[in-house]
Nucleic acid binder design. Sequence first.
DNA 1: AATAAAAATACAATCGATTGTATTTTTATG
DNA 2: CATAAAAATACAATCGATTGTATTTTTATT
Lengths: 345, 345
Amino acid sequence: MNPNKVTIHDIAKILNIDSSTVSRALNNSPRVTEKTKKKIIAKANELGYQRNDLASNLRKSKTNTLGVIVPRISRHFFSSAIAGIEEAAFKMGYNVVICQSLEQLEREKSNIKTLLANRVDGVLASISMETENYDHFEGLRKRKIPFVFFDRHCNIPNTSSVLLDDFQAGFDATEHLIFQGYKSIAHFSGPKHLEIYKNRFEGYKAALKKHHIDFIEELIFYSRLMEQDGIDNINKLLSLPIKVDGIFSANDVAAISAMKQLKKKGLRIPIDIGVVGFSNEAISAVIEPSLTTINQPGFEIGTRATELLVSQIMVGNDSFIHEKIIIQGSLIERESSQKIKETIE
Amino acid sequence: MNPNKVTIHDIAKILNIDSSTVSRALNNSPRVTEKTKKKIIAKANELGYQRNDLASNLRKSKTNTLGVIVPRISRHFFSSAIAGIEEAAFKMGYNVVICQSLEQLEREKSNIKTLLANRVDGVLASISMETENYDHFEGLRKRKIPFVFFDRHCNIPNTSSVLLDDFQAGFDATEHLIFQGYKSIAHFSGPKHLEIYKNRFEGYKAALKKHHIDFIEELIFYSRLMEQDGIDNINKLLSLPIKVDGIFSANDVAAISAMKQLKKKGLRIPIDIGVVGFSNEAISAVIEPSLTTINQPGFEIGTRATELLVSQIMVGNDSFIHEKIIIQGSLIERESSQKIKETIE
DNA sequence: AATAAAAATACAATCGATTGTATTTTTATG
DNA sequence: CATAAAAATACAATCGATTGTATTTTTATT
């Protein structure tokens, strides 16, 4: 017999008992004697029985599975968040299904459809850069499937999310540059509709204000913060009539390509210009000069988001407590912004 | 009504037709009139109907889902392989479920159990460093679930796999060092039982032999090729009575930490010692000096493996054609091994 | 208009496990 | 030993979709 086809009915027939007893035995129900349980479990192992979760989940209308949607799994922040999610989910008896939107709205929509069709018990999501319309998430809500945003969230009422304190991190990054003596600081921001970039930008502005530095509109560069964008931003920046001596980039990828371009143009980092990134990608510690950046505790954000989600699944009705958890990032000071030290040496 | 609870029976009742007709209409069966189809689809959309794949898959005993097991999604090679897998799977109408073994045998086993319970149609796997026993894969075979290894495979008969030509790549890497004038070349190898490391090692030996360089057992360092291992290897290597002027590391991670340690010990790369890695991690292009390495075409390996797996699923019986596909890697020459250039300049 | 052929739809079993209720068996008590 | 109470197991419906077969309706032909 193909062991993949072994069902509780086969076991029941062989042992001449009812399949309901087999089911209960395999689920360790107190309604079955130890003796019978042993017999059943032994036979199940012998036949290589493997429960069919499709049938089980269908009957229970519960899959014990959480869906995760991230822009890309290869980004350091997301892969560590996923590690945290898997860890927390496993502890609480949940499986995890991972989807990538690859920063595309259409993919994100289709991810949600797939998760829906597979009846996941809840969804954890970090939205794509293209996502400006949130109807697909409203669809989840209509179907009463709890969801929690982490990091990149949607600004829609009554949703739970676990977020980095992007304002504070943006503030810290900028103030660090100011403390180091940089005076004319540009900012590389991401798509305007994304809350995280708005908040990092607001933090930047607040730091300037605190230190009585004029905010100059021309020093803000919007892009998708991809590799090419960092290069383009530098080219634009160098053609400005204003002399810039510091850059706070809202991600590391753009910061790193910007540094390369700066070097190519003959500028010295951190002496002529200081650079601070955001996310603490693995590369940032290795490049030369190493990149000062904000560390986002991905693992913790993942676990917290998962715990929040599971607690909402447990409650099980509409009366979720829609909670926002704010996690603090931390500035990692590296070479790319050490004007003081470099100048002294 | 909770839209998540809408079934074909609800639609059938409302329209006063049979649920089988609804099912056929939604699956675009020719057995239903266009007029009826339109009516049904309209009502389905109105109610926010979403097929329950659990029920559908249970009935069809086919999930249209492929399971993927990788050591970690954060490694560049694996995330690009996954991109290739998703691309190919999507084209052929399959979903993909990703699992991480985190290099642990126990996790790998439990991944297989989960995939089995969820009745995936096939499995793509790259085994963990701990995997020396292949019983869990034999379990898949017993259940007649096709599987294909990619990159890190098991050397068991009658399995399909898509592999890098590790021998050739190891040969090329080593010969490149020899061409550059390095004469005493050490090799950092991985766990002995993994085929990929065996083959890279064999390639190394073959290159030495071709160029009449004696093979010296002491110059082979086995480890798990993690960050710390690169450092440890250098310390051991520098304490040898033999002067080493080249290193071929079986992965980039160990190569990079080794370079750091070499620099710390005052050795100049590539003048005093040349280094070649393996895998072409993103960091390798960015560090200084940039690392010469072997590029593994992850995306292609992913698509090829997926195509092979799906073809075996299609055949559907035991008579799989167990195929091995060998893909060529390519040497990417960067600064860490350019003795010739550096010496001339 | 009658009737055969074809088209459209309805019926009913099925996938495999779960679970409330009913029945049988065992144990305890007078 | 009788009988109630408790324990163990059996029965049967159910989750939601699919699909082979049966039935009804429509269309075509004479």
